[in-house]
Structure formats: structure tokens, C-alpha cells
């Protein structure tokens, strides 16, 4: 059995760990609230831009002059997976879940004979994917240096992706991130961002387009001109909202993980304290017995 001194130092070390996990939990809770607010305030823009594109796409049809970003290159041989994860660990299975989703996609695509390229955002995802698919990774970005998520980051990534598409480096782009449902649940999803019409069909059913009372939209400049500018922007927006969802998810997951860590530490302290008291009592008893039997022997 461990000595009293050993037990004492173990108790205090677990107590210190508990303090740290509790602090991390509270920090995550505060950051979660901010992240949720950010995600909330970015929503109107994302919704409007999606509505506008589905409107335009409907009025343009699949005409020959439709931009490639909308209708695709006509082939689907090379797929770019944009995998967004967090830069920090200690947030439960958050990063692992996203990477697992990405791996499922990669396996399925490779089985279908397609070439897969990976564009990885976030250090944790990179570390995990680099072990298995280092040959597929074309680009890696860490957001560790950024103190706050802003639209500019997403714009840089989006422009990068669009430039790669224009250079013919891939045919289809999918975005993999975790959708924030609540603190306990973040669902990894894969969303097609290029070609854009793949994502529009779904959006169309609930959007339905505004009621124009039979009037006709005027476009300034023409529809194709507007789409050319609008589509890259919509990609940036989708990346931005994915990053925001991720941020909220990471914080939520971290909060849950740290909460259970704090609870586990509490359980451990209870158990150790019990053992400590028992050991102490046993020692006192045996000391007493020694004294008494010593006295009797006289």
C-alpha cells in the first residue's frame, strides 16, 4: 500500500489538474458563446447569397455561357477535399470525427477510381491526415496565428481554391467540416462547393425564390457577369460559415470534454481521499496496538 506522503501528493496533483480543466472549461464556455454569436450574425449573408444564386441559376439554365464554377467542367475525375479542422487539441473526438469523415470520403472516391487531392485547414487534421495521405495533400493552412476569425481568412482560402479550379487542377471540390448542432453533438458533413449547382438544387426547395408579382429582374451588368463575380464570393461565404461552425463546434466539444475531465478528477480525488483516510486510520490503529501490547508485556 502506498505511503501517506505519496497519497497526499497524488491528491494535490489531481486537484491541480482539476483546477486546470475547470478553467479550460470556463474559457471554452465563454469562447463558445462568442463563436455562436459570430455564426449567428454571419447567417443572413450566407442565406441571402444562396437565395440570389439559386435565382440566377434558375433564370440562366444550363446555357452554354454559364460559368464553369456553376455547371462544372463536365468531368469528375479529380476531387479536391477541403478538410477544415481545429488547430488545437483537447477537445474530445472533434478533430478525429472530421478526419474520419474525410477518410471515408477518400476511400470511397479512390475505390471509384478518382484522384483525390487534399486541402487541409487546421493543424490537428493535418497531423492525422499526413500520416496516411501525405502524398495527396496539396496545401496546408494553419489558422493558429489568427486571433479572431474574420471573412478575410475565408476569402484568401476561397480565392486560392478558385484559382486552383481555374488552373484546371481539379473538377469537383468538397468541403468537410463539423456542423454545430449543440454542445454535445457536432456532425461532420461533406458539402460540394464546386460546381455550385450541386448545392443549389437542395437549397431551392425551401428558398423558392422571391415573389416578384410577375415582374422581370433587371440585371446590371448581365446575368453571366454577375454570376462570375457572385460564385467565387459564394464559395468564400461557404468556407467562412464552415470555419465559424467549426469554431463553435470545437469550443462546444472542448467544453464537454473538459467538463467530464473535471468530473473524473473529482471522482479520483474522492477515491484517493478515502484511501488516504483508511491508510491513516490503519496506521493509528496499528500504533495503538503496538503501545498497548507493549504495556501489557510489562
Amino acid at each position: 500500500m502506498a505511503s501517506l506522503k505519496e497519497l497526499k501528493s497524488r491528491i494535490s496533483s489531481v486537484k491541480n489538474t482539476q483546477k486546470i480543466t475547470r478553467a479550460m472549461q470556463m474559457v471554452a464556455a465563454a469562447k463558445l458563446r462568442k463563436a455562436q454569436e459570430a455564426a449567428e450574425s454571419a447567417r443572413p449573408y450566407a442565406e441571402r447569397i444562396r437565395g440570389v444564386i439559386s435565382n440566377l441559376a434558375n433564370s440562366m439554365g444550363d446555357g452554354g455561357d454559364a460559368p464553369k464554377l456553376l455547371i462544372g467542367t463536365g468531368s469528375q475525375d479529380t476531387v479536391l477535399l477541403v478538410v477544415a479542422t481545429a488547430d488545437r487539441g483537447l477537445c474530445g473526438g472533434f478533430n478525429t470525427n472530421i478526419v474520419r469523415k474525410a477518410r471515408e470520403e477518400i476511400v470511397a472516391l479512390e475505390r471509384a477510381g478518382k484522384t483525390v487531392k487534399l486541402y487541409v485547414i487546421g493543424k490537428k487534421g493535418y497531423d492525422q491526415l499526413n500520416r496516411l495521405y501525405s502524398a495527396n495533400i496539396v496545401k496546408y493552412i494553419s489558422l493558429k496565428e489568427e486571433r479572431k476569425l474574420h471573412a478575410g481568412i475565408a476569402r484568401n482560402i476561397g480565392e486560392d481554391v478558385t484559382a486552383m479550379f481555374d488552373a484546371g487542377e481539379f473538377d469537383v471540390a468538397k468541403l468537410i467540416f463539423a456542423n454545430f448542432k449543440n454542445v454535445m453533438e457536432q456532425v461532420p458533413v461533406s458539402q460540394t462547393i464546386i460546381p455550385a449547382n450541386a448545392s443549389i438544387e437542395v437549397a431551392d426547395e425551401d428558398a423558392g425564390g422571391p415573389d416578384l408579382n410577375g415582374a422581370i429582374y433587371t440585371y446590371e451588368p448581365d446575368e453571366a457577369g454577375i454570376l462570375r463575380v457572385l460564385l467565387p464570393r459564394s464559395i468564400n461565404t461557404q468556407i467562412f460559415s464552415a470555419l465559424l461552425e467549426n469554431q463553435a463546434g470545437e469550443m462546444g466539444s472542448k467544453m464537454a470534454a473538459m467538463d467530464s475531465a473535471t468530473r473524473n478528477a473529482g471522482d479520483m480525488i474522492d477515491k484517493l481521499t478515502l484511501t488516504f483516510n483508511r491508510t491513516r486510520q490503519a496506521r493509528i490503529t496499528s500504533e495503538l496496538i503496538e503501545i498497548i501490547s507493549g504495556a501489557e508485556a510489562l
Binding site: 440566377l56 415582374a215 422581370i216 429582374y217 440585371y219 451588368p221 454577375i226
Partner: peptide, 12 residues
Amino acid sequence: GVLPNHSPLMAA
């Protein structure tokens, strides 16, 4: 300039 009851328009 956009006034109330403007006709539907999409402009960059």
C-alpha cells in the same frame, strides 16, 4: 438610387 416600389433589380 433606389426608392420604394423599385422594379426588381440585381446590380453589382
